[in-house]
Amino acid sequence: MTAVIINIIALGAFAFAFSRNRQKALKSIKVAAKMFLGILPMLIIIILLIGLLFGFVSEEGLQQFIGEQSGPLGVLLVAVTGAVLHIPALLAFPLSASLLAKGASITIIATFITSLTMIGVVTLPLEIKELGGRFAALRNGTSFVAALTISLLMGLVI
C-alpha cells in the first residue's frame, strides 16, 4: 500500500514537472539513474549486511547490545556510531527495519537514524570551513542532544 502511494506521488510529480518543462523532467530520469549508480555499492553492502544479520546473528546476542535491556549505554554507543558512520539516509531505513525485526528497541533505532542524518563527523572539517567552528560545534552538539531526546520520547510513546 505505501509502495503504491510512493509511486503515485513520484509519478504525479513527474507528470506535473513534465507539463511545466518537458526537457527538465526527462533529464530528471537521467539524474535519478546517476544517483542510483552512486548509491549502488552501498546498497549492495547494506543488503548483504542485512542478510548476514539474519543468517548469523542470534536475536539474544543482538538484543544485548541494542535491545530494550541495553540501557543508556547502548543508546549512547549507537548515537556515537551514527555520528561517525557515513551512510546515505535512504539506506539507513531498510537497515533500521532489519534491526527492529531482530529485536532492537525503538529508542535505539530512532537514535541511530537521527544521529546518522544530523551529525557528521566525517564532514565536520567542511562544515567548519563554511560556517565556522563555533556554529559547527553548536550544531553538532545540539544535534546530539536532539538525537537522544527524540529517541527517548519515541521509546516512551511507541
Binding site: 510512493i6 523532467a25 530520469i29 535519478a32 539513474a33 548483504l48 548476514l52 543468517g55
Partner: peptide, 25 residues
C-alpha cells in the same frame, strides 16, 4: 540469508525507482 536478501531487494525495488525519480525532479 537468502530469503532476507531477496525480501529486502524486492522491498527496495518497488520503491527505490520512484524515490530516486522524485529526488531527480
Amino acid at each position: 540469508f537468502g530469503t532476507t536478501v531477496l525480501d529486502y531487494t524486492m522491498e527496495l525495488i518497488v520503491v527505490l525507482p520512484a524515490v530516486l525519480l522524485l529526488m531527480g525532479l
